[in-house]
Design a protein around this nucleic acid. Structure first.
Lengths: 219, 219
DNA sequence: ACGAGATTGGAAAGGCAATTCCAATCTTTG
DNA sequence: CAAAGATTGGAATTGCCTTTCCAATCTCGT
């Protein structure tokens, strides 16, 4: 009977206070959905956390689906911006290790609760909300692109052989991160994440060594 | 106020018909929870699917949490038994590829809906249901053990160097599978899974080649 | 300062889900 | 066959959640 997700009118905040309210709601929802899942987060939950009334949430986001979509976009862009300095320089084995280890430290800090902000949403929503799936695919694509461009630079530079499939390597690293975080979440221990990620980076390092070996004239 | 998951009395079926009913419920719940998530699966949903009345579900499983726990154990054992013949012989690169590719074919068949039976449950329940997390950790451990024992056999045989960390390699492969399935689910395309898994297996293959190279007297 | 539109509070409608209950109806066993 | 226990049907209870609605109150341009 429901118009199947007719995107209800979502008014953009046009006043300063409105913008802050909208932001407070978004942050609260993002945090709750991350820790308890989307289904496990009710509108009243968000209300309490953000200290707003129901009307404000529906005023700015239309309905729960709209709020969820906003959270997906929020998490995608926020996580990306947070790591921008590192993400733009993933063009050496050391940089890759440093980047992945930073995530490991974060896992330690929260005792592996929640796993990956995007991965958790992806697992929960992919099969039941097509538009959410789209948004999440976009989020992952940005990550993959960041890794891939770093690897591509290494290849241009000659650190990696010209025949390396940097796209596949990027996907493998991303998968190791996601799968590793899931295993760490289940075991409440960051070790599986570290092992999974390190094995893939070791593999990339091996390829770098191989490229160097086949080019003995250098250095 | 609720005794926080006091495991309600769960009567084991003591009659033939009872056993079949219990089984029907379990299968229906497993399938629904796999495709729609635990939160997205209501008791009435299970009733319809299994053609039973509410009392039967509560009679055999106590409450929804009990049903969920039963589904976790069911999925863990079923998936393991299904693959038993392959799982017991993961002691060659070819066997590993064959095993992983079989999962890829399954993904293709269902258009990547659902991802991994256990991984999906793990992502949804790990942070909100401690006892479920335990059960899922056990399920993953069995998988890891199967991979690890295959790799250990390769090491004993000399296919892998004596210094290889087969435990880390097993975790990496399991993570690649889980992460790859997640990426495939989001992209509705089994390619990410295949790439992720193949990169890790390539890495193991490289180690095998290295072991062979350092032992030129053989063959 | 005034009016339009933005923002907010809070109540209340409507629905569905989890769970309980009790009264049948089978099954098994002595 | 009769009693005990297992199994089943289906209604009823309770509670929470999503969403809507309307009446304030606030903000801002003019």
């Amino acid at each position: 009977m429901q118009p199947h997700s007719a995107e209800t009118r979502v008014r953009a905040a046009s006043t300063e206070g409105g913008r802050r309210t909208r932001d407070r709601i978004l942050r609260a929802a993002a945090e709750l959905m991350f820790k308890q899942g989307v289904a496990g987060t009710s509108i009243p939950d968000v209300q309490r956390r953000a200290q707003v009334s129901a009307s404000q949430i529906y005023h700015y986001f239309g309905d729960k689906k709209g709020l969820t979509a906003a959270v997906i976009e929020y998490q995608s862009t926020v996580k990306l911006e947070q790591q921008r300095p590192l993400l733009d320089h993933l063009d050496s084995i050391e940089a890759l290790r440093e980047w992945c280890e930073r995530a490991a430290v974060r896992l330690d800090a929260v005792h592996c609760v929640g796993g990956c902000e995007i991965g958790s949403l992806a697992s929960e929503l992919s099969d039941i909300d097509p538009s959410a799936r789209l948004g999440l695919a976009t989020g992952f694509a940005a990550w993959q692109a960041a890794i891939e461009s770093g690897l591509a630079r290494m290849r241009e530079r000659g650190d990696l052989g010209a025949d390396e499939d940097v796209s596949a390597l990027a996907v493998a690293l991303l998968a190791a991160i996601q799968g590793g975080m899931l295993l760490s979440q289940v075991n409440q221990d960051a070790t599986p994440y570290r092992r999974a990620v390190n094995v893939v980076i070791d593999h990339i390092a091996d390829r770098v060594a191989a490229a160097r070996a086949s080019r003995p004239a250098d250095r």
